[in-house]
Nucleic acid binder design. Structure first.
Lengths: 146, 146
DNA sequence: CCCATCTGTATCTAAAACGGTTACAGACTC
DNA sequence: GAGTCTGTAACCGTTTTAGATACAGATGGG
């Protein structure tokens, strides 16, 4: 559904590639193929989470707030607000029904377990890994052509 | 976001409790606290996936299509169309950028790993487990009052 | 054979989320 | 002071979801 996570990882990988050089939202938007304003909105979320930072004025732009090896995909996932994977019933189920009054608690424990499994996977990968992956892909792509 | 998964599990747990007796969409809607038509829509999805079945006419209603111990939460998850957890960029990233032309492939492999971890958790729990959980919860709830 | 029951499905509406876009004030560099 | 760039608010069109109504068709009972 939500492409914010993918775009945020894209942005951060790009920042890491620039090694501390501030990158403008317009440049980033050119790589992502979207709008500079949308990029700034995302960077705002990342900044609020302590992942990215930005400098105003001429020569300004965005940069990583800490080493790429210390930024996990889980950090990013949470920063862009992908909070709840599963939703419970919109209306509270009927408390007069034995199933109705207990199903949500039962669901929640399994939802939590599944969410934790997913997050554990995301925690294993960092932005540094992502840049390495991208570079490896690019080398492979090059040899295809040659 | 999407409460279909929670409601579908609720419905199936209710069906299992009735042990082969057809249950009307109106009765189910009473437990879920929603609309009979919405329940029928969901049961339609479950039927298409071979999980539930229904009988028309007087005395009709929905029932499980196979033993509850053979219906996993993953089956239900897929039946109600919770297909893709992660989305890639809406617009294709700039192929002229080294990051842009490789980021999606890199993302996909990690997205797949995370999705698989989540699905593996869901596969471990069946509708029979859910009914057992609900009953255990209910006993605990009873002793609270007493 | 007819009637009551219940499903299956189509349609409509309201609300929410998302991405895309424009606009502009404020901060910073030169 | 001029030019640059961010931060943020506002708005729109699209899509998704859930809630609701309506009705044709199948089924079973009398």
């Amino acid at each position: 559904m939500n492409s914010r996570f993918a775009v945020a990882v894209h942005i951060l990988t790009l920042l890491e590639q620039q090694q501390g050089e501030p990158v403008t939202s317009e440049y980033i938007a050119g790589s992502v193929n979207t709008n500079p304003s949308l990029v700034r909105r995302l960077i705002g979320m990342l900044a609020k989470a302590g992942i990215a930072d930005s400098q105003l004025g001429t020569g300004g732009g965005a940069l990583l707030a800490r080493p790429a090896a210390k930024i996990t995909l889980l950090d990013v996932y949470r920063a862009v607000g992908e909070g709840e994977l599963f939703a419970l019933h919109r209306e509270r189920p009927n408390p007069a029904c034995p199933i109705g009054r207990n199903i949500q608690a039962a669901l929640e424990s399994h939802f939590d377990a599944a969410s934790r499994a997913l997050e554990e996977q995301l925690r294993r990968v960092t932005i540094a890994d992502m840049l390495a992956d991208v570079r490896k892909q690019d080398r492979r792509r090059g040899s295809h052509v040659a």
